[in-house]
Structures are given as C-alpha cells and as structure tokens.
C-alpha cells in the first residue's frame, strides 16, 4: 500500500517536471517501484522482467534518444482544461467500474476458478516443469509467444529501416 502511494507521488512528479532528464530518471524510479510491487504480488517472473526492461534498457534508450534531441520541454501554451476534463471523466467512469470488481486478495473470484487453477494442477504431470509461468509461456501458450517474438522481430526491423545509415552516397 505504501509502495502504491509512492508510485502515485512519482507520477505527479513526472507530470510536473519540465526537464526531461529528471522525468526519465523518475520514470526509472517508477519502474523499480513497479518491480517491487510485482514482487509483493507474487509475480516474480514479471518483477524480474520489469526490473531489467523498464528500469534498465528503456532508461538507456530514452537517455540516448534525449541526447539526440532537446533537453527541456517547452512551457504549455494552449488550453489545459479539456485534457484534464477528459481524464477526470474517464477516471470517474473507471471508479464507478470498480464497484463490480472483486476485493483484493480473496480466493473466490471468477479468475481463480477457471483455467488458472487447471494450469497449476496439471503442470507437473504434463510438462514436468516446476515454474508454472514458464510452462504456460513456452508450452501451453507457445503459439502466443511465437507471435510475440515476431512482434519484437518486426519492431527491430522497423528501427533498422528508420535509423540505419546506408552506405550509398546521395549525389
């Protein structure tokens, strides 16, 4: 709960700061907090990924992009009312939606009574792998992972197409 509150404070910082370097470092702190929360919520695999991806690689990429562009954000000139209004209306609708959501941490929710429990019960006899996340990721939902690897492949190809300096000289 304290970690969640800290995250909210960091996000307010991200909104307020004008210097983009500060914003990126705050984004890194935000990712670390997120990783700790995921660890508390028993999602160890996701926490490891978030710590290495969100706080590591994405910060490095953001900083190298910032080095190539401008350091400071321009002061806001146009009207701020409408974005705030849209955000608040969306937030109010979402808060209204939470009345239908189950309470935190109880066991008798729809998501625990369907396929999730089935994976936990069958993983050892089907695949012999202790870590259920790995067995679902690689075996039960292997096709999903294949599609996802293809997305990364496509993104990398796109970046090469956009940024790679070609050796042919323009005359």
């Amino acid at each position: 709960m304290i970690l969640l509150t800290l995250m909210a404070i960091v996000v307010i910082g991200i909104i307020r700061f004008k210097n983009l370097f500060n914003v990126i470092i705050l984004g890194s702190i935000y990712s670390f907090l997120m990783a700790s929360i995921l660890l508390v919520l028993d999602a160890v695999d996701v926490a490891l990924t978030e710590a290495s991806v969100g706080a590591g690689i994405s910060t490095v990429l953001m900083l190298s992009a910032l080095y190539l562009t401008k350091r400071n954000e321009n002061p806001i000139t146009h009207n701020q009312i409408w974005p705030l209004l849209i955000a608040l209306i969306t937030g109010a609708l979402l808060v209204f939606g939470t009345y239908g959501m189950p309470e935190f941490g109880i066991i008798n929710t729809p998501m625990h009574n369907h396929v999730g429990g089935e994976y936990l019960a069958r993983s050892i006899s089907d695949t012999g792998i202790e870590n259920v996340v790995t067995s679902v990721l690689a075996s039960y939902r292997g096709f999903d992972t294949l599609g996802e690897v293809t997305v990364i492949f496509t993104a990398a190809i796109g970046i090469i197409a956009i940024l790679k300096k070609t050796k042919t000289k323009v005359k």
């Binding site: 160890v44 695999d45 870590n131």
Partner: peptide
C-alpha cells in the same frame, strides 16, 4: 534456470 525458478528467455 527458467524451469525451476523465475527466469526465461526474455529476462
């Protein structure tokens, strides 16, 4: 060690 603890190809 991805089979026995947290980990795997992505990480």
């Amino acid at each position: 060690h991805g089979d026995f603890g947290p980990g795997g190809g992505f990480q």
